[in-house]
Design a protein around this nucleic acid. Structure first.
Lengths: 208, 208
DNA sequence: TTGACTGTTTTTGTATACAATAATACAAAT
DNA sequence: ATTTGTATTATTGTATACAAAAACAGTCAA
């Protein structure tokens, strides 16, 4: 049931199911060889992700997932992640920050995209999870799922990869020195840059 | 079905269902004289609200909704509502801002709590909805639902009511003059004050 | 007494059948 | 020709039946 969720999720994100088309329970059920019951459950989840809208007694339609969406998601992400930084920066372990820096430097020339995707996730998750704020963590993870594919795709480009690495390292340095104001400013710029990368990846994905 | 959702929602918020207790589908179904199918749907919604957690094949337990939760929700709200302000402040209609001011002043001495609850909602909604950002609006509305009861209760106290009114008016003035930096600063303080009010209302509600 | 095993019961997950609602097509009237 | 009303169909909403998994209780062995 998790896989029909992910299948639909990705089809919508990647534009395979365009905005406006209707998702009928029966069709989906037969398509995935399951009954309508789990289908309804999945549709409810997708609505919570903001990918579809369910009209009572009328069914579900796919909502637009366009550049505007990416733009909005990144602005929300920026606000929430800066809040995380504010909360966790004073209590982050310098030792762990240094470890993270080492890992990033060691893998700087690694060609594997997955490695960089993981390091990126690791970097942001450490800051976010250290807040210990359940809701905040959940909200950011939900946003991350929405932009995940476009984030990874960005690491295919060498320059993009290198600038991302540098930005991560600079933020870690500021955090080690407990220069929170600088860390926030750098993080703000980093997320703005990431947004531009994601947007360009979206356009690429949609034009293929 | 909407009413069983609201019933459970409020019972959890108000501490009637304490953290940790298990919600069994069958019991809820018989209690509300419906079948398990809509109960499951409601439980899924409550999980999205962050009020319960569903463990696969094991069922749902109520999560804590304590002062810490209120604290966290208000911090998130502050970040997101300030983002809204940043986006919408430059484009808010001065005419509408003045209308809003008038309404607030006219009703300043009204004794009806509902009137003040509505004005409060109106004030914040205008700023939030003017962004036109669907996701942002949805997220804030979800947060508002969680703290709604404690917000209204605050208006029972005369001093609290008056300070809230004054804060709203000051923010509206700043917005009329397009002094966005000031508006943001005032909004930040306003939400911090609201947090304290909500927290005290939570404690009151829990001790009765 | 403790601990592992097994059979029973409870509870959740899914499929299916039925009910209620909305969409559609077609006919009749203006 | 357009609109209104009605019958039909399609689709969602809910109840129930069945399957799978987990929790529980009791028994036996160490």
């Amino acid at each position: 049931m998790i896989d029909i969720y992910l299948t639909l999720f990705n089809k919508i994100i990647l534009g395979e199911y365009p905005a406006g088309i209707r998702l009928k329970e029966e069709s989906l059920a037969t398509e995935f060889n399951i009954s309508r019951t789990p289908v309804r459950s999945v549709l409810q989840q997708l609505e919570q992700d903001g990918l579809i809208q369910i009209f009572p007694n009328k069914g579900a339609i796919v909502l637009p997932f366009s550049a505007d969406e990416i733009e909005e998601i990144y602005e929300i992400r920026k606000s929430l992640e800066l809040l995380c930084l504010e909360i966790s920066a004073p209590i982050l372990s310098v030792q762990k920050l240094i470890e993270l820096k080492k890992k990033i430097i060691e893998n700087a020339n690694n060609e594997d995209i997955q490695v960089h995707t993981d390091l990126d996730a690791h970097f942001h998750s450490y800051i976010i999870n250290s807040t210990g704020k359940k809701r905040l963590i959940d909200m950011l993870n939900q946003l991350f799922r929405l932009i995940q594919s476009f984030r990874s795709l960005g690491f295919m480009d060498k320059e993009t990869k290198e600038s991302t690495i540098n930005e991560h390292l600079e933020i870690l340095d500021a955090l080690c020195r407990r220069d929170i104001a600088l860390a926030k400013e750098l993080m703000r710029k980093h997320i703005d840059n990431s947004k531009i990368i994601a947007l360009s990846q979206l356009l690429k994905a949609r034009n293929t």
